[in-house]
């Protein structure tokens, strides 16, 4: 996994609540058997004026001029500013894959849906929860100032505004450690293989019907 330490980038808005995973990446793109290439279809139904199909050359499709990510001022954005319950809906990891492939490294919102939140960390994408009033303020500042950038310092757990002001954020110790070091959790878990085997042997004794039933 890609490590995340510090990132400075242009901020773009996704200014609506309850952005669901179907909106982030519509189902027809889930037919891919790869992990990459979802970026051009991020927010497909909002971004383009036609219905997208997998494998299509998106550079020829009509863009929706009213969708913020299509505004010239947000081109090259890597920090997404969003509203409450971002990423609700399905477990599709294609959602963080699409955000990552588009170029986002961090998402700031007052709240995230659980599965999406968890999936982000597995892909080097940092979801940051900030107080609703702070998010409101960031939206105002971003709208007011073209080229508005934020710096995200994971080590210090801080978002740094252009004027140097800092905002602290919480992040789980384990997730932070993995993200800072770009660690693969499977390798880490397998360090505990003996504990897993011990548990498994005990479980097999207590509940043998859970083993070898489906063959």
């Amino acid at each position: 996994m890609k490590a995340f330490t510090q990132h400075k980038g242009l901020v773009a808005p996704m200014d609506r609540a309850n952005v669901d995973t179907d909106l982030i990446i519509p189902k027809q793109f889930l037919k891919s058997i790869k992990r990459t290439g979802f970026g051009p279809n991020l927010f497909d139904e909002l971004r383009y004026q036609d219905e997208g199909q997998p494998g299509q050359d998106c550079s020829k499709r009509p863009l929706n001029p009213e969708f913020a990510l299509n505004y010239p001022r947000y081109q090259g954005a890597s920090v997404l500013l969003a509203r409450e319950n971002f990423g609700c809906g399905s477990s599709r990891e294609h959602a963080p894959w699409a955000l990552d492939d588009y170029g986002f490294r961090a998402i700031i919102a007052p709240s995230f849906a659980d599965i999406f939140f968890n999936n982000c960390f597995k892909n080097g994408l940092l979801p940051i929860v900030l107080d609703e009033t702070i998010v409101d303020q960031l939206f105002d500042e971003m709208y007011a100032e073209e080229g508005y950038q934020l710096t995200i310092d994971l080590e210090k757990q801080q978002v740094v505004k252009p004027n140097g002001e800092t905002i602290d954020f919480e992040v789980d110790a384990f997730r932070k450690h993995c993200l800072l070091n770009g660690l693969d959790d499977i390798g880490l878990t397998l360090e505990d293989a003996d504990d897993i085997r011990t548990y498994e042997a005990k479980r097999r004794e207590q509940a043998p019907w859970l083993f070898d039933a489906v063959k």
């Binding site: 399905s90 963080p96 599965i115 999936n119 384990f174 959790d185 499977i186 878990t189 397998l190 897993i196």
Partner: peptide, 17 residues
Amino acid sequence: GIGTSEVEHVMATQCLI
């Protein structure tokens, strides 16, 4: 429900973090 990285994790380790 779990994401695809966790699908791989559970297949490889029988566990979830």
